[in-house]
Design a protein around this nucleic acid. Structure first.
Lengths: 344, 344
DNA sequence: CTGAAAGCGCTTACAG
DNA sequence: CTGAAAGCGCTTACAG
């Protein structure tokens, strides 16, 4: 093109039409005749032309970009993000790409001022929040996003003020399924590793499902069998130590996440206990590592592909001005070797 | 602001300066007096103003965005990406954020036409390629990027036409370190799991290091001990089967990646062999799962934080018009339990 | 150090 | 179905 980059004006000149028609043809506007459209597109291809997104974004006010924010615990020394969210990120980019959206990604800490970084600056049309399950800590930020009329959706339990903004798993049902599985294998003294208060609504719901399953069997819930743990291996291991030190009898552990379960199994074996011989362990999420460890982890799967698709769809609905409905995806038990009693 | 969004004109009006001065002040131009700058910034803060990136991008031709492309094997049924790249992605976003760049991410398949998607369309100022180690397959695409004068850098071994574009690990040294470790523990019949041809330059270099270490001990390389495997667990397991079926004697395995090593260990145990008792196993990468499995995997660490920082720096150098130098980061042996002979 | 003006490359009323 | 014109909100010569 001699000087400078190829623009829609160059295409227009070559096609013998106006620049506006080029713009319309390239976007498949029904206002353009089939013949014109084809001619324009062919020339664009030949010239290796691509619409300038900055220009299009400025004029239209749309970026066709979604921002995905992954929460990162600032206390974590190793900058580790739950692998489940990482895999979801992959599915989000694919779901977005199918709808012709790009994905901007950032790992954010609680202290940072992300709440206005994206939409106000016209970097993205909407935001997906991953790992922001603890609504109590994020209340201010979420409030701010709402006041700024930002388009955003959240992965996690539904919560106050989040109607039509959440996609999650039926955590209570998931907790019940996991516990029922352990009970069906004859385990009676099932410990729960995970916090169960408002700060972790997903864990709280899984605990409620745990209670449901026990109640259905007429087994009383023993509060001494619940041990706090957040989503890290080391905290699963720490919970094992506390459980062992407490002297409480147990023959199974329901870990509220796979990461906790993995740390739990390692600590149990370190303590000379066999899994599943002495203790059966079930996790939650079905991260990749779950199938790699020995014994392979029986867990409750939250399909990340479906989750990502639902999040993207819900966000696009909101961007389009719709209301959208929150969704709870069905959990699914994946039976492997960590609970015993099963031939594969 | 009554109608519409807040723009630099609103700020200018309130500050009693021209819009151009607002633009300069917000970008910390030295052309603006300290006093004016502070006044403008304060008003911008009060009004919750953010520069419109589309407008800035259109005028300046810079997006201050980097695209990270992760290669995804289309033969993979589970859309899985090597966790090592995922963790690197996190570090890339952090390194970019520190330099005030956003990161666009996409999981791309070989067949897709990504080579012109990003820069020509003004979506990003440069591209980071992750998982494109097999330069043979990507030659055409890389050629195309070069012809389009795209700014891009690659994680992997240096290769023809990639001077000043690669950041990688000293793979040969890493292979030597891993092998030397096994030798120092008395292992003599060390199998290598990984392809060793041009198509996998990183694995090839690790194999060369393996040969170096054996040669230094005066041990002849036995070609019967090399088994092809790509970066997936199942292929590590498949290599174990072939090794066992071959009847070749062995007491250790150097797996060219952690994923291969994890599949290898699982298959060995399935076959009734103990790790490290019967067979010592060493991996490569130090992914998160390496420390979670039993026995914990001894491996060669490639620091993802350093790698990400080097990739971003190199890319920004190129974007700024500089040449930049390719870099090889030092590998580091991480000793855990999968090779035995070590008290921790 | 500051301002008036041009212009980046599109999309979108508006008119036909 | 098509075109001429306006304008999105900035950054950047240019002039002072």
């Amino acid at each position: 093109m001699g000087s400078g980059k190829t623009t829609s004006f160059h295409i227009a000149l070559m096609a013998g039409v106006s620049q506006a028609t080029v713009s319309r043809a390239l976007r498949d506007s029904p206002l353009v005749s089939e013949a014109t459209r084809e001619k324009v597109k062919q020339i664009a291809r030949d010239l290796n032309y691509q619409v300038d997104r900055s220009a299009a974004g400025l004029r239209s006010g749309q970026t066709r970009t979604l921002a995905t924010l992954l929460f990162e615990d600032e206390t974590a020394t190793d900058n580790s993000v739950n692998p489940y969210f990482l895999s979801m990120l992959g599915h989000i980019t694919r779901a977005a790409a199918r709808r012709d959206y790009d994905v901007l990604v950032a790992f954010q800490q609680l202290s940072e001022n992300w709440h206005q970084h994206y939409e106000i600056s016209n970097r993205a049309d909407g935001i997906i929040l991953l790992g922001y399950g603890n609504y109590v800590s994020f209340e201010d930020k979420l409030d701010r996003l709402r006041r700024d009329d930002a388009h955003f959706v959240v992965w996690g339990a539904s919560g106050p003020g989040l109607d039509g903004r959440t996609v999650g798993c039926e955590n209570r049902l998931g907790g019940e399924i996991a516990t029922r599985h352990l009970l069906s294998l004859g385990r009676k003294r099932i410990a729960f590793f995970g916090e169960k208060d408002e700060r972790c609504p997903e864990f709280r719901d899984r605990y409620a499902g745990y209670e449901d399953a026990l109640a259905a069997k007429g087994i009383e819930v023993d509060p001494d069998l619940q041990f706090d743990a957040r989503g890290k291996e080391s905290l699963g291991a720490a919970a094992v130590e506390r459980l062992l030190a407490s002297g409480t009898r147990f023959d199974a552990i329901f870990a509220a996440s796979d990461l906790i379960a993995i740390g739990t199994i390692a600590a149990l074996r370190e303590a000379g206990l066999s899994v599943p011989g002495d203790v059966a362990v079930v996790g939650y999420d079905d991260i990749h590592a779950a199938s790699c460890i020995t014994p392979a982890l029986t867990t409750v799967r939250q399909d990340p592909r479906a989750a990502a698709g639902a999040l993207v769809d819900l966000l696009l609905t909101r961007i389009a001005g719709g209301k959208g409905d929150s969704r709870q995806l069905p959990p699914q038990l994946v039976v492997r070797n960590s609970c015993g009693g099963v031939k594969i």
